[in-house]
Design a protein around this nucleic acid. Structure first.
Lengths: 142, 142
DNA sequence: AAAAAGCCTATCTTTTTTATAGAGTTTATG
DNA sequence: CATAAACTCTATAAAAAAGATAGGCTTTTT
C-alpha cells in the first residue's frame, strides 16, 4: 500500500496541475480542497520542492507551482521520493537495494527471481505513466 | 515491501517443501535453519495451518508439513494471508477493498485507473507463480 | 505418568507513520 | 520601512503497525 504521504502528494500535484494557470497556489488552499492536515502537507510539498518537482514563492501572493509539465513527472518518481522502494524485496530494488539477511546467493534465489519480475512489471507502468495520465481521467474530482 | 512475516513464511515453506519426504518438521528446526525467532515463527506457521496450507502433528515425532503440493500454493495467497492487500491503493484491492477517503467517483479517478493496471500486472505474476517456482532456482540456499 | 511438541492468547518493545508545534526567513505592499 | 503574508526548517509527539516474547494449555507418544 502507498502511504498517506504519497497519496497526499498525488492529490496535491493533481490540484497544482489543474490550477497551473492561476499562479502560485497556497498550501492552505490545497489542504482544504483535499482534506489534508495543513502542517503535514507542508512537509510533503517541501520534499517535492527539494526534489525539483515544485517551485515556491514566499510572501503575499506566494505559494507552490509545478516546475515541470505533468507529462514530465513519472508516478514512480513520486512514490520513491515519499515512500522509498517500490520493489517487494530489498534485494530486487533498483534505487534502494539491500541484501536480504541470510541470503547466500541472489543468483540462485527463486524469490529474488520472481520478485524481480514483479518489479519489472510494476515499473513498466509506473515509470511510463505520469502526472498527466492521472489527470486526463480525473476532471477535478478530488 | 513484504513484511518480515511474509518473508519468513516463504522461507519456512521452502524448507518444508525441500524436506517433504522427511515427515513432520519441527518449528525449532526451521527457526534454526532460517535464523528466525522460534516464537515468531510459531505464529506464522499457525496462520499457514489455519489457512489450510500446512498440517501439523502434536507430541513426539510431531511437527509441520505441507498439505498441498508446492505447485498448488500461489505466492499471492501467502502474501495476502500474512500481509493483507497486494494492491497499492485500497480502492483497487480485490481482496481487501476499501473506498479511498474523499473519493467521489472511482470510475473517473486517474489514480484508480493506473493503480488497477499495476495490480493486474502484479497479480498476473503472483497468482501464477507458486511455491514450486521459488524452489527450482533455489537449491537449499536458505 | 511424563515428556515432547504444537496451540492459543496476551503482552511488550521497537519502528514507522502520521501529525503538530513553533520559531525563522523571505517578499509584497501601503 | 513596518507589517503581514507565506513558505522554511527542525524538532517533537501521538498513534499505529510490525516484530518479538511469554507462558499456560492441549494433544500425542512412549
Amino acid at each position: 500500500m502507498l502511504s498517506k504521504k504519497t497519496q497526499y502528494a498525488f492529490h496535491a500535484l493533481i490540484h497544482l496541475a489543474e490550477n497551473a494557470d492561476k499562479g502560485p497556489i497556497l498550501i492552505s488552499e490545497i489542504a482544504q480542497e483535499k482534506n489534508i492536515s495543513i502542517k503535514f502537507l507542508e512537509n510533503i510539498l517541501l520534499e517535492l520542492k527539494n526534489a525539483g518537482i515544485l517551485g515556491s514563492k514566499k510572501g503575499k501572493g506566494g505559494g507552490y507551482y509545478l516546475l515541470k509539465t505533468p507529462k514530465e513527472v513519472p508516478l514512480a518518481k513520486i512514490i520513491r521520493l515519499l515512500d522509498g522502494a517500490i520493489a517487494l524485496l530489498p534485494c530486487v530494488s533498483l534505487n534502494y537495494y539491500e541484501k536480504c539477511e541470510n541470503c547466500r546467493d541472489e543468483a540462485v534465489c527463486g524469490l529474488n527471481d520472481v520478485m524481480g519480475k514483479v518489479r519489472d512489471a510494476t515499473l513498466k507502468i509506473l515509470e511510463n505513466k505520469t502526472l498527466k495520465d492521472i489527470l486526463t481521467r480525473n476532471v477535478s474530482i478530488f
